[in-house]
Amino acid sequence: MKNEIIIAGFDGQGVLSMGKILAYSALFEGKEVTWMPSYGPEQRGGTANVTVIVSEDRISSPILNEYDTAVILNQPSLDKFEERIKPGGVLIYDSYGISTPPTRKDLTIYRIDAMDAAAEMDNVKAFNMIVLGGLLKVCPIVSLENVLKALRKTLPERHHHLIPLNEEALKRGHEIIYHVE
């Protein structure tokens, strides 16, 4: 079983770190994993994306032209990646950054109002963990337990007191994601 995932949005939304936490969680599940960021000047105020591949077997290319799962957090990313999702694949989008919702009929599409939820939680930084929680609800690639383990691994110790908040955000994401007909 292999899941080829693209996470794409604006720089500053925590796209790369969300991918990193997902990658570490997969590592703790004993799976093969590759994390490949788009790097370069486009990250300065522009769009950022990361490809995370989680697999039972050896991973070949870290560079992909189509994806099983897309997590889309702004309109430019939707415009770029909607057509690059495999037929039958999963598309998750946050409504806040999307003015023209996805139109493909051959995908399973989920919406998550994570930006709104983060504002309600009075913590915009929890945004990416809410999205990750939503992703894991509809694609249970890794367990919550291993995500928390990954957070402990990737967050510097001085930020470990924020882990309960992140857990809350992950659970919030679980609750608020919904299927779009």
Binding site: K20, V33, T34, W35, M36, P37, Y39, P62
Partner: peptide
């Protein structure tokens, strides 16, 4: 190259 340098793997 930049792919192998920037990507994370086990």
């Amino acid at each position: 190259d930049g792919v192998i340098g920037q990507m994370m793997e086990k």
